[in-house]
Structure formats: structure tokens, C-alpha cells
């Protein structure tokens, strides 16, 4: 056993000239993380990465003439994994599979601000940080709305993979709603729509195909509209309509901006549609 390990180590390091080895902590969770981290770091004959999912320690073996530790860690960070020298871009982290959403070391304040590119200027309501939800008791549906708006923005960009990830957060927000603390009128509507909303969110999570997601977004939007009408909003919400979608049957959506950005067609017909109601 020991001999074979030694052997494998030798054959492994023999691939890299001028080899230098260092160890460094890289954040991650599971076996999926392991292969993603190693794939991002490895370059044939130049760099080899071995990451241990229990200790979170990676062994980097690299050609010190051709590369350095920072180059390897930079590539790994761009794949979504923080280390002691680099923070991954938030978008890259968000795109990781759910099991890989390790706890990030950096302050959550950064998270919010980086997610701002996806959302409008509203403060983040704990999309990725579920512990924040409890402090949101006052208007716990807000997390649901924010999830919905993020989803809409992803569909505007025709970004199926982002929509799928965001829908997962939306689902979490839906499940986190404590029905008993809702206001009576919210409670009534919530009872009515919860099941449908959950189904639509689930379907959107399960696919990366935008056309399918948009399909479910039509019914999701209808139910959200009923819900948001009885909620108190601190800013106006616009109920908007595209007459073209679904062979002219049309579809609706909610937006925080009055300007039309059509989630059913994205850039193809971005400004198709009109505001039919302003909900205050």
C-alpha cells in the first residue's frame, strides 16, 4: 500500500518539471467540489492540484518556471472557490451546484453588494443567507418577492442556468414563510397560491432551458400578482403585459421598474410590452 502510494506520487510529480510544492486552504464541501477545484487548477505538465475535502487543504505541485501559486489559485477562484489568497467572483460562487455552496469566509456584506448586479438597489433579504430570514419577520414575503424579481432579471438576460439557481433560492424563501405570522389578507392569498408557486419554482429549478422556465414563469407571475396586491410594498411595483408571448395569448410579469424589460423574450424583443397596472 505504502509502496504503491509512493509510486503513484513519483509518477505524478514526474509530470511536472522544476516542480515546487505548496499547500494552501481552499474552501469547498464535497466530492463535486474536489473535482471542480482540481480541474480548474490543473494544467498538463505545468500544475497539478490535489484537494482533500475533509481538511480543505490542497497540495499544489507546479513548474515554478512556468507558473506560480497565485496563478493556480486565481483559476480556482474563478471557478467559484475561495482560498486564503483569492475570493471567487460572487457570480461564479452562485453558479456552483447546491451541494458546493460552502460557507464563505468573507463578510456577508460583500455578498449583498455583489448580488446587486443581479438585482435592483433594494437591500438583499437573505437570498443566500437563510439565517437572515428570521429578522425579516415583519415582511417575510419580501424574500419571496426579491427572489421573484431576481428570477425575472435572469429571464430578461435569457440566462437559464442563473434562473435555475435563483429559483432554488426562491423555493427556499417560499418554504421559509411562516404562514401564521402573515397578515390575514396575505394569509388567505398565500393559502391559495402556495402550492402552485412552489410547483412553478421547482420546475424552473429543475431545468436550464429558458423556454421551459418562461412557461412556468407565466403562472408564477399571475400568482405573485395576486399576492403582491394584498401586501404592503415600500416601493411601487409595475404589472406589465406582453401581448406576443405564447402565440399571441400574451403573458404578464411584475417589475420594480416602469421601463419594460421583457422576461419572455429577453434581448430579442426586450422592450415589447406595456405597464397595465401600478401597484402601490
Amino acid at each position: 500500500m505504502a509502496a504503491s502510494m509512493l509510486l503513484s506520487f513519483q509518477s505524478f510529480s514526474a509530470q511536472v518539471d522544476n516542480s515546487k510544492t505548496s499547500t494552501v486552504k481552499i474552501y469547498g464541501n464535497c466530492g463535486m467540489c474536489e473535482s471542480a477545484i482540481e480541474k480548474a487548477g490543473n494544467v498538463k505538465k505545468v500544475a497539478a492540484v490535489e484537494w482533500n475535502k475533509d481538511s480543505k487543504i490542497a497540495t499544489l505541485t507546479y513548474d515554478s518556471v512556468k507558473t506560480n501559486q497565485n496563478e493556480i489559485l486565481r483559476r480556482i477562484a474563478l471557478a467559484g472557490y475561495d482560498s486564503e489568497h483569492f475570493f471567487a467572483p460572487d457570480e461564479a460562487y452562485a453558479k456552483l451546484p447546491a451541494c458546493c455552496h460552502y460557507e464563505r469566509a468573507k463578510a456577508s456584506a460583500h455578498k449583498d453588494e455583489a448580488m446587486a448586479s443581479l438585482k435592483a438597489d433594494k437591500p438583499e433579504a437573505g437570498m443566500h443567507d437563510h439565517s437572515a430570514m428570521t429578522s425579516q419577520d415583519k415582511n417575510q414575503l419580501k424574500a419571496v418577492y426579491d427572489g421573484y424579481f431576481s428570477l425575472k432579471d435572469a429571464l430578461v438576460k435569457s440566462d437559464g442556468s442563473a434562473a435555475s439557481v435563483i429559483a432554488k433560492d426562491l423555493l427556499a424563501a417560499i418554504n421559509a414563510v411562516k404562514m401564521e405570522t402573515l397578515k390575514p389578507e396575505e394569509h388567505t392569498v398565500w393559502m391559495k397560491v402556495k402550492e402552485d408557486v412552489t410547483t412553478d419554482a421547482e420546475h424552473i429549478t429543475e431545468t436550464k432551458e429558458v423556454s421551459h422556465q418562461r412557461d412556468h414563469f407565466t403562472t408564477l407571475s399571475k400568482n405573485m400578482y395576486q399576492l403582491i396586491k394584498v401586501s404592503k410594498n415600500d416601493a411601487p411595483v409595475y404589472y406589465q403585459h406582453c401581448p406576443m408571448y405564447n402565440d399571441g395569448k400574451g403573458a404578464d410579469w411584475l417589475s420594480k421598474e416602469s421601463a419594460i424589460k421583457n422576461p419572455y423574450y429577453g434581448s430579442q424583443m426586450l422592450s415589447c410590452g406595456k405597464t397595465v397596472e401600478t401597484i402601490k
Binding site: K157, S158, V210, Y265, S267, Q268
Partner: peptide, 16 residues
């Protein structure tokens, strides 16, 4: 800006 290159996108860009 205009979405990633997917099959779905190709369909849509025909429409464009």
C-alpha cells in the same frame, strides 16, 4: 448582454 449561446438562443435569434 444578449445571453449565452444555447440551442434556445439560436431559436430566438432566428426570430430576431
Amino acid at each position: 448582454i444578449t445571453g449565452s449561446e444555447t440551442k434556445d438562443e439560436n431559436k430566438n435569434s432566428k426570430m430576431e
